[in-house]
Amino acid sequence: MGKSNSKLKPEVVEELTRKTYFTEKEVQQWYKGFIKDCPSGQLDAAGFQKIYKQFFPFGDPTKFATFVFNVFDENKDGRIEFSEFIQALSVTSRGTLDEKLRWAFKLYDLDNDGYITRNEMLDIVDAIYQMVGNTVELPEEENTPEKRVDRIFAMMDKNADGKLTLQEFQEGSKADPSIVQALSLYDGLV
């Protein structure tokens, strides 16, 4: 993909415009910024974590950033290329609610087996709590990752089998306004 070129080839721009919710001009602008920050044309896990640390200076986002990195890194080569970056950004910032929920499901399904187990969710929720640090005051019933996961599973795990399917996750998330709101945070920002 033209590693350190400051412009993408027209056919690449066209393809990314088809695969995302961005215009050709927006794709070019994002590429310019991506190459400025990642001259090699790729972003590794350490660089990704560094970006998260800028956004969450009062907590430790390392663990959460690693989980997000793994979802962005579609081809699992340990690096995020621009096409992976822009497609994930498109879903998280401008995707439909169902697209965002499928993306979030992939984030929580750490072993990619098609289910979110209690332990997988606990890993992610714990990482989120570490990331936000003491900057967020949580209600008593959610002031630990374990309590939050218990509440989520009580609401979403309809067949009580200890794991969530994509359908259970989507339906449960849509029924909880706070989850829908959290997924909409990026709307309109890009």
Rank of each mutant, 00 (worst) to 15 (best):
A154M: 03
E171L: 07
M156K: 05
D60Q: 09
K63A: 02
V149G: 06
G188F: 07
I124E: 03
G133C: 04
A45F: 06
I179N: 06
P139N: 09
R151Y: 13
D111T: 08
D73E: 11
P61C: 10
L101T: 12
L97N: 07
Q28P: 11
K36P: 00
E15V: 12
G59N: 03
I35A: 07
S173I: 12
F48Y: 13
S83A: 04
P57R: 02
N134R: 02
W30I: 01
I86R: 04
D126R: 14
T165F: 14
T62V: 09
K19Y: 11
Y21C: 13
F153W: 10
A127I: 04
F56T: 01
Q170G: 11
K100L: 13
E14G: 14
L107N: 05
D111V: 04
K19T: 09
T17Y: 15
Y31K: 09
I35W: 15
E137G: 09
D44N: 04
A46P: 07
K7N: 06
G59T: 00
Y108F: 10
G162I: 11
K163W: 07
D126G: 03
I128V: 05
V149L: 07
S90K: 03
Y31D: 15
A182P: 09
D126N: 15
D98K: 09
F82R: 10
G188R: 12
A45E: 06
Q42F: 14
V13W: 15
P61F: 14
T20Y: 02
G47M: 02
Q28N: 03
I128H: 03
K3I: 15
A154L: 04
E168K: 10
K50H: 01
A46Y: 07
E84A: 07
A46G: 00
W30L: 07
F58H: 11
T117P: 02
Q49V: 04
G162E: 08
I51C: 12
K100M: 12
E141V: 00
T92M: 07
R148T: 00
F105Y: 08
K25T: 11
K147M: 04
I116A: 01
K32E: 15
P177G: 06
L164S: 06
S184C: 06
D176I: 15
E26K: 15
V149M: 09
D157R: 03
N5H: 15
L89A: 00
M156N: 08
V136W: 10
V27A: 15
W103M: 09
N112M: 01
M131R: 04
E11K: 06
F58Y: 00
G2R: 01
F82T: 04
L107T: 08
D111F: 15
T23S: 02
T23A: 11
T23Y: 05
Q170V: 05
S178L: 04
L97K: 01
P177R: 02
F48H: 14
S6L: 01
G188L: 06
Y115L: 00
D60M: 00
G133A: 10
G2A: 09
G59D: 08
L89F: 08
S173G: 03
V27Y: 15
F82Y: 04
T96G: 01
K63E: 08
L166V: 13
E26W: 15
L107D: 02
Y115W: 08
G47L: 12
P61S: 10
D176G: 12
P61W: 15
L166M: 01
E137Q: 00
E26D: 12
L97V: 04
M155A: 12
G162W: 12
V136A: 06
S83I: 07
F169H: 10
Y52A: 04
Q28C: 02
D113T: 02
S178K: 02
T66E: 02
K7D: 06
Q49E: 05
M121L: 13
E146Q: 12
Y186T: 00
G188Q: 10
S93A: 14
T62A: 08
R151S: 14
K32N: 12
P61M: 03
L43I: 02
L43F: 14
S93G: 09
S178F: 09
E171G: 08
R151N: 02
E14L: 11
P10E: 02
V68L: 15
E14Q: 12
N75F: 10
Q87W: 13
K50C: 07
T66P: 09
S184I: 02
A154F: 08
S40I: 13
D113I: 02
P39Q: 00
K9R: 03
L138N: 15
Y31R: 15
T96S: 06
N112P: 02
V27D: 15
L166H: 11
F105A: 00
Q130P: 01
W103L: 05
K32P: 13
L101F: 09
K100C: 01
A65R: 06
P10D: 01
D113H: 13
L110G: 12
K158E: 15
M156W: 14
Q130R: 11
Q170Y: 05
L110E: 09
E120V: 06
F69Q: 03
F48V: 15
A154E: 01
V71S: 14
E14A: 14
E84R: 10
V132E: 05
R94P: 00
I116D: 13
D126I: 06
K147Q: 04
S4H: 05
F22S: 14
A46C: 05
A154K: 11
N119C: 15
Q49D: 03
V12E: 01
N70D: 11
A65F: 01
M121N: 02
E141M: 07
T20C: 08
K19V: 06
I128W: 00
Y52M: 08
Q130K: 11
N75A: 07
E24S: 08
K174E: 15
K53R: 14
L89R: 01
P57T: 02
F153M: 07
L185K: 06
I128N: 05
E99G: 10
V125N: 06
F72L: 11
L138G: 07
D109I: 09
S184H: 00
S4R: 01
N70G: 12
V149K: 05
T135D: 06
G59C: 09
F82A: 09
V132N: 05
F153D: 05
I35E: 11
K32R: 10
A160H: 15
E141F: 14
T62L: 03
M156V: 10
K100D: 00
E84F: 00
K19C: 10
K36L: 08
E141Q: 08
S40G: 14
F85V: 13
E26Y: 15
A182T: 10
E11F: 00
K106S: 00
I116P: 06
Q170L: 11
K63C: 08
Y186Q: 13
L97R: 08
L107Q: 01
E14V: 15
V68D: 14
N70I: 07
D109C: 02
F48K: 12
V132Y: 00
R148F: 11
P57G: 06
S184N: 09
K36T: 02
P10I: 14
E99N: 12
G2D: 01
S90H: 15
